[in-house]
C-alpha cells in the first residue's frame, strides 16, 4: 500500500469530501495560504466561496459555522492552535453542542472542527501545548483523536459526514509521520476502537500521539518476555467500550496512557469504565500515566518531566506486573 504523511491524509480527506458534497465549506485563519498545510490547494480547486480566511475572531467564526450548519451547510472549522478551543468555548459547548437537544431534537449541526496541531511539541509552552479533548467530551461533544495516517483520513471523512458537531484532534507530533493509506474510498466510523497490537499479559490503552509510543514500548517489553496488548480507542466519544473491556478481561491488567491532564482527564474516565465493567477480571489495580496538572513548561527538561513518556511507560508496565495478584 502507498505511504503518505498524516498531514497529507487529512488534506486528502478534506479535498475528497469537498468534491463529494458542495455544502462543505472551510473556515479558519490563514487557510487560504494553508499555514498548517491541511487546506493546501483548496482555494485553487474550489474557489473563494468554499474557503474563508477569517479575522482573528474564534468565537465569531465558530458561531458562524453553527448557524451555517443549521441553515444547511456542512462547515469544517480549522483552529490554528489547540488553545483556540478555549477562546471559542461558549460557541462550541454551550451553543453548537447544546442547541439541537435544547430545541427538542430539531435540526442538525454538522460542523467538523479540526485542531491540526494538538499537544506539545518542544517549546510551545503553556498556551500552545494542550490537548483539550476531555473538556469537550465532558460537555458531550463527539471527539476523535486518530493516531495513524489511515485513521486520520477515515475518521476525518466520517466526522465531516456526521450530522452532529465533531472535533478532530490531529496531534502536532504525528503530522509528519508516514503510514499506509488505501487509495480507494473508505471511512472509519465513529465509535470503533482498534487493537493496534495483540498481547496477553497486560493492556495499554493509549490515546493519539501516545499510540506509537505504546507500540514501541510493547516491542521492548516483548524482548523481556512480556506480552503487551495496545488498544487505540481512536474515537473518544462515542467510545468503543467493548474493545477495551474485551482486552482488559483477557489480560487482567491495564495501563491508561493519555497526554491530557490527570484530574478529570480522559484516563480517569477510562479507569471508571473499566472499574465498573471489568472489576472481576482485574489482577492488579488500574494504573494511569498522564500529563501532570500543570501548564506545559517551555524549557525542554521541564517539558519532558511533565509529559507522559515511553520510558515511564516501560517502568509502569513492569510495576504493574510486579503488583499483580499471584
Amino acid at each position: 500500500m502507498r505511504e503518505i504523511r498524516y498531514l497529507e491524509a487529512l488534506s486528502e480527506a478534506l479535498r475528497e469530501e469537498m468534491r463529494r458534497d458542495p455544502k462543505v465549506i472551510v473556515v479558519g485563519e490563514d487557510v487560504r495560504h494553508s499555514l498548517r498545510g491541511v487546506t493546501k490547494g483548496l482555494l485553487d480547486e474550489f474557489g473563494p466561496d468554499r474557503i474563508y480566511d477569517t479575522p482573528i475572531s474564534e468565537a465569531g467564526f465558530t458561531g458562524l459555522a453553527t448557524g451555517a450548519a443549521m441553515a444547511g451547510m456542512r462547515p469544517v472549522v480549522e483552529y490554528q492552535i489547540n488553545a483556540l478551543i478555549f477562546v471559542a468555548f461558549d460557541q462550541l459547548v454551550d451553543q453548537a453542542q447544546k442547541l439541537r437537544y435544547m430545541m427538542g431534537g430539531q435540526g442538525r449541526i454538522p460542523v467538523t472542527y479540526l485542531v491540526p496541531a494538538s499537544g506539545a511539541r518542544r517549546g510551545l509552552a503553556g498556551q500552545h501545548s494542550d490537548h483539550p479533548y476531555p473538556l469537550l467530551i465532558h460537555m458531550g461533544m463527539k471527539v476523535v483523536v486518530p493516531s495513524t495516517p489511515r485513521d486520520a483520513k477515515g475518521l476525518f471523512k466520517a466526522a465531516i459526514r456526521e450530522d452532529d458537531p465533531v472535533v478532530v484532534f490531529a496531534p502536532a507530533a504525528l503530522l509528519p509521520v508516514k503510514g499506509p493509506v488505501p487509495e480507494e474510498e473508505y471511512t472509519i466510523p465513529l465509535g470503533q476502537g482498534e487493537v493496534k497490537r495483540e498481547g496477553s499479559d497486560l493492556t495499554i490503552v493509549a490515546v493519539g500521539p501516545l499510540v506509537p509510543e505504546a507500540l514501541k514500548c510493547a516491542e521492548l517489553l516483548a524482548a523481556e518476555g512480556i506480552s503487551a496488548e495496545v488498544v487505540d480507542p481512536r474515537s473518544l466519544l462515542p467510545l468503543d467500550r467493548d474493545t477495551i473491556l474485551a482486552s482488559v478481561r483477557k489480560t487482567g491488567r491495564v495501563l491508561l496512557f493519555d497526554d491530557s491532564n490527570r484530574s478529570c482527564g480522559y484516563a480517569a474516565e477510562l479507569a471508571a469504565v473499566i472499574a465498573e465493567e471489568a472489576w472481576a477480571s482485574l489482577q492488579a489495580p488500574i494504573r494511569r500515566l498522564t500529563r501532570a496538572d500543570v501548564p506545559v513548561p517551555f524549557s525542554p527538561p521541564l517539558e519532558a518531566y511533565v509529559l507522559p513518556s515511553r520510558d515511564r511507560l516501560l517502568a509502569e508496565c513492569r510495576q504493574l506486573l510486579a503488583a499483580s495478584r499471584a
Binding site: G123, A125, G126, H128, F298
Partner: peptide, 15 residues
C-alpha cells in the same frame, strides 16, 4: 529555557 530566565524557563518567548 534556562534557570536564570525571567520565568525560570517556564514561559519562553511568548510569556
Amino acid at each position: 529555557g534556562k534557570a536564570a530566565g525571567y520565568n525560570r524557563g517556564r514561559g519562553g518567548s511568548m510569556h
